[in-house]
Design a protein around this nucleic acid. Structure first.
Lengths: 355, 355
DNA sequence: ATTAGCACTTGAATCATCGGAGTGCTAACC
DNA sequence: GGTTAGCACTCCGATGATTCAAGTGCTAAT
């Protein structure tokens, strides 16, 4: 709000960066004296104090109380993050672990995301999250029907690249020939349609096609619709929640409780993330309440989209205190999402010749 | 260790019960004076003090420090719980909510358990858990194969009453006629077999049966084995972790962290629970470290098995502070598991005639 | 423009004090 | 003998005073 030119001289930059670094490392406010140790800044504490006062005026720093050091404001973190173009690179072994874990799961997006989120949490030591965003257009691409006994069958649906199943029970018989017929009708008539596009005339036509087995259409279609609506809700998973506790900013019970409540109130988050998830190919970083829910005062969200055939099919990210190790987190998330995207887009894995 | 007859006179029972009740309600140690308000105990504080001293000697009570009131020991809670034969009954509306939620999901054990665990957490206000125990003998009961394109297919397996799917990718073509052939071979040869029973001769025989498509057998069998071994690991889910925070006994950060760490270290829990899950038709209650992992000093675990065709297929439970509302929790878990068991065993739901 | 120095502010830690709650025990009471 | 009133004793927790150290802002000197 209040003015302040955007231009920072080199020394201010160095000081700001040093403050953020120090605060990330220690978690405490940092004072002028401490900064004199930093080689990059060749001046006395008094000078630094003056600079810090100006940085505070510009909104990059904050003072918890009069006689404490400074901590970076959200704007300060933002500046710092934007500065970080030189990526922290994962070590060879970390990359290997990642690749190895992904190689197991062939194209099972669900399983892959689960693996990835665990890995992300482990590698960064923060809470990780995986997201399957809400999608506008959900439709079944392929149906299959597996008959179990006289009155039971399993309906198998391919949605995107995810397989969903649903039990069908009927109080009238489901003869073997009816299942294949029904599967054929379903594939012919309602592949590619969203729940809203399955109309009554369509259903009636299907019933006509089913002949004497018309009674099966209604329950099956209902099952399809249920599955579709269940699917488009998106999905959000967390892993490593307890890692939050290791960081002093969450030692405050109330804050922690808010955070956990946030984790459970997935709907809200999902909504926001689903929007954001569609945007861009880069790692996205939300600092504090920059954009998202306001609960996240002291937290930062880092995530990146996973795409298949150019379309976002999920996202993976990290949530943690604002003073997080950005280099590492960014690198991890970037690398993970890149590898997942790669794994699900370049199929054809060579069939190793084990005994 | 030190002696003490098991017999408690009526007054002692009344006092012990009153203390547990009060401590559950308030969370604080309870003193002799407070208990005089209780109508059931018609005597003065001094008498009560004497009785309490004896109860402490017998091991049913503890004193945090000399000049505090008493709190129930684990043995005290145990006694209290065993005393609770009169069940707390859920209200009509609660039962209705439960039934309604279950009715939606037809026999999808996974979805049902998910619903149930959410409900359990909501109804009791504690952290709830659902368990699919480790099982000794896992075998596929039925195979189906869905062809997607020239090199991809989805293998669909019915394990118990759970459907699992797995992508199959091949670097050689998967022609349509091969899929049905392969499904037939799989159904003929390896239904009912555990991973260990799928031997090399068997595989070779299958390859012979597949004729020119023999190259498909190996990757598919491998997928089957992976799925089976993935499945027998059991599964443990938590819901409502943040509810723990509402209780003062978890206001201690370290305790809380231990607890959360426990939640993530599912393997261990799974192991213990899988054993226990097989036992009995009653609600099981573990108080403190009575039996389980030692982390759970101040916590109680209440759970009950869900059975299908008489066999345990899962369990649902609550975890919370030792001073929990046992009546309510026991009733909820009992009712939930009973309803689930009912839902998955008595199929044939009437097909309502909605327009 | 930079720096040294100093007065000032403020939260955190330490310590002593005090009050209340609750006990255990003894002596009186039924 | 069981029950109760009374009292001395213990111990925790809250309160408040004091001290301490860190860090600032400002002024004057370089």
């Amino acid at each position: 709000m209040s003015g302040g030119e955007k231009v920072l001289n080199e020394r201010k930059k160095a000081i700001l960066k040093a403050i953020v670094d120090a605060h990330i490392a220690g978690g405490e406010p940092v004072g002028s004296k401490f900064l004199t140790q930093n080689q990059q800044i060749g001046c006395s504490s008094a000078t630094i104090r003056n600079e810090m006062a100006e940085l505070e005026e510009m909104g990059y720093l904050e003072q918890p109380h009069t006689s404490a050091g400074r901590i970076p404001s959200e704007a300060g973190y933002r500046f710092y993050v934007d500065l970080l173009i030189d990526r922290y690179n994962l070590t060879e072994s970390e990359i290997e672990e990642l690749r190895g874990a992904l190689r197991q799961k062939q194209n099972e997006l669900d399983a892959i995301m689960q693996t990835a989120v665990t890995l992300a949490s482990k590698l960064t030591n923060y809470t990780a999250l995986s997201l399957r965003p809400r999608q506008a257009r959900i439709a079944v691409g392929r149906f299959e029907l597996m008959r179990l006994d006289d009155t039971t069958a399993v309906l198998i649906m391919l949605i995107g690249s995810v397989v969903k199943t649903k039990y069908i029970r009927s109080n009238r018989a489901i003869p073997p020939e009816a299942t294949s017929l029904l599967a054929g009708v379903l594939n012919a008539k309602i592949t590619g349609l969203t729940a809203g596009e399955i109309t009554l005339p369509l259903i009636m036509e299907m019933e006509r096609m089913m002949g004497e087995y018309d009674y099966l259409v209604s329950p099956v279609v209902r099952a399809v619709c249920e599955t579709i609506s269940g699917f488009d809700g998106g999905e959000l998973r967390f892993e490593g929640i307890n890692r939050l506790l290791a960081y002093p900013e969450f030692y405050d019970m109330d804050r922690l409780r808010e955070m956990l409540a946030l984790f459970e109130k997935k709907d809200k988050l999902l909504e926001v993330l689903s929007d954001e998830a569609h945007s861009g190919d880069r790692v996205q970083i939300y600092i504090g309440r920059e954009n998202l829910v306001k609960v996240m005062d002291n937290s930062t969200l880092v995530f990146k989209t996973v795409t298949q055939d150019g379309k976002p099919v999920g996202a993976i990210g990290i949530i943690g205190p604002t003073r997080m190790n950005y280099r590492r987190v960014i690198a991890t998330i970037d690398s993970l999402s890149r590898n997942i995207t790669e794994a699900i887009n370049a199929p054809k894995d060579k069939d190793g010749s084990e005994s």
